[in-house]
Nucleic acid binder design. Sequence first.
DNA 1: GCAAAAGTGTTACTGTTACACCCATGG
DNA 2: CCATGGGTGTAACAGTAACACTTTTGC
Lengths: 232, 232
Amino acid sequence: MAARSAGPLTSVDVDVVALTLSGGQLADGEQLPSPHVWVEPDDTTPGRRRLPGRPLTPADDLEGAARGVLAAIGIDEPRHLEQLASFGAPDRVPGRHAVSVSYLALIPEPHHPPAHGTDGGWVPAAQQAAGDLAWDHATIVEAAVQRVRSKLSYSNIAYGLLPDEFTMSELQLVYEAVLGTTLDKRNFRRKVTALGLLSDTGRQRRGSHRPARLYTFTSAELVLLDDVIATS
Amino acid sequence: MAARSAGPLTSVDVDVVALTLSGGQLADGEQLPSPHVWVEPDDTTPGRRRLPGRPLTPADDLEGAARGVLAAIGIDEPRHLEQLASFGAPDRVPGRHAVSVSYLALIPEPHHPPAHGTDGGWVPAAQQAAGDLAWDHATIVEAAVQRVRSKLSYSNIAYGLLPDEFTMSELQLVYEAVLGTTLDKRNFRRKVTALGLLSDTGRQRRGSHRPARLYTFTSAELVLLDDVIATS
DNA sequence: GCAAAAGTGTTACTGTTACACCCATGG
DNA sequence: CCATGGGTGTAACAGTAACACTTTTGC
C-alpha cells in the first residue's frame, strides 16, 4: 500500500459522557446515590435526548474539544477526563456519516450545576437513559459506566467523583454506588488503605456522631495498579 | 446546546496495529519469540515506515475499514480485532488535520505472509519500531502492546496469537513473550486450566520427546474474566 | 541410552472473607 | 442519655508462590 493524501472527508463529533453521583447527598446517605449522566434535548429527534457534543473543527485536538463541550455546560474542570471509544457505523446517525469520538468525564458531587441556563440535566445513567437517548448514545453511556466500574478495581479513579477531602464512608459510597453492591466496612478500609493512594489529612468532619477522619488521594491523576480490590 | 447539523469535515484514517509473535518458531523455541508489528514504507516521509491504514470512506463502518486494511496486506481473517483508541492532535500529521481511529489485530503465527507482493514487513514492536515510525505511530504501537499485555491477565486474548490447537508450552510461550517474563510451568498450567477456557482435544503432538497434549480455547471469541492470572 | 521437552504435588505463605462490638459526638 | 455514624481485630479459608523429579518419545 502506497502513501495516501487526505481522502474523503467525514464529519467527526466529539461527544462527552459526563458522570456524577446523585440522588442522596454523599454526606447523608438517606437514599443511595447512583451514577447520573448529563443529557440535553435534541431538536432533530423530538422527545429524545442526547449526549452533549459538538463537531470537531480543524483547530481542535480531540481532548480539547471534549473540554470545550464540558465548558459549554458549565463544567470548567472535570476531575477526570479520558477517551472512551469511537463509534462509526455508517447508519448510526441517519442522513449523515458521522464518526463519534466519545469521552468519559467524571464530576465530583459538589460541582453539580443543577440546571445552568442550558436545558440539559442529570438523569440516572442506568434506567431512564437506556430507552431515552437518541441514536447509539445509550450504548455509549453503558460503555462509560462499565469503564468506571472496572477501573474502580485497579485504580484511584474514584477521585473523579469525590471532593478534595472525603471520609472513608463517602469513599465507600462511591464504590457501592458504581458497583451496585454493598461492601464490608472493615474489609473495605483495610484494602483501600493498603493501596497506599490515600493520605490522612489531620482534619476531621464533625456531625452528630463520632468525628470522621478526612482523607485525600495522594495523586490527583489517574494511577493504575497491577492488582485488584473490590468484592465483599 | 442546541442540535447541530454536520459541521466542518475532517479526514479520518483507520490505522491497524497488526501484531504477531515472531523470531523463534513457537514449536521450537531456540530463540524466544517477541511481538512484531506490520509496517510499510511511507512515500511522504522518506526513510520512515508507517502502520497500514486508509482513509475512511462514506460507506465504511470503522471495523469494516480496519478489516479492509488487513485484507490489503494479505490478512483475510485476523484472529482478533478490537478498537484501540483515536488520535487527533491537530499537528499529528503535518499539513492536514487527520484523526486516526486505530485498531489492534492479532495474527496467529502460522499465517505470516513473509512478504506478500506489498513492500511491508514484520518488525519487532519493542525496539526498532519505536524510533522508526512516522508521526505518532510509535505511540499507537506502544498502546497496542500494552493492551495485549494487560488483557492476557484477565481474558483468553492469547487465542489471537495461537493456531487452533496448541500445546501448553506454546501457550506459555505466548504469555512469556508478551509479558517479557518467564513463568513457572506448574503454576502456569494450574492457573490456566483453572480458568476453564481450555479444552483438551484428545490429540497429541509428537517430537523427540514425550508427546504433548493439544488444547483449544473453548471460545474463539474474547472472554473477559473478573479476576487476574499471571505472575511467577 | 541419551537428549529433549512433557508432565506432575506438596508445603509455606499471603491475602481474603466473614463477622460484632465499642467510641465520640450532637442534641 | 439516646441516636447516629465512625472506627477497630481475629480466625477460618482460599489462592499463590516456590520448588525438583519422573515420563515418553526420537534418534
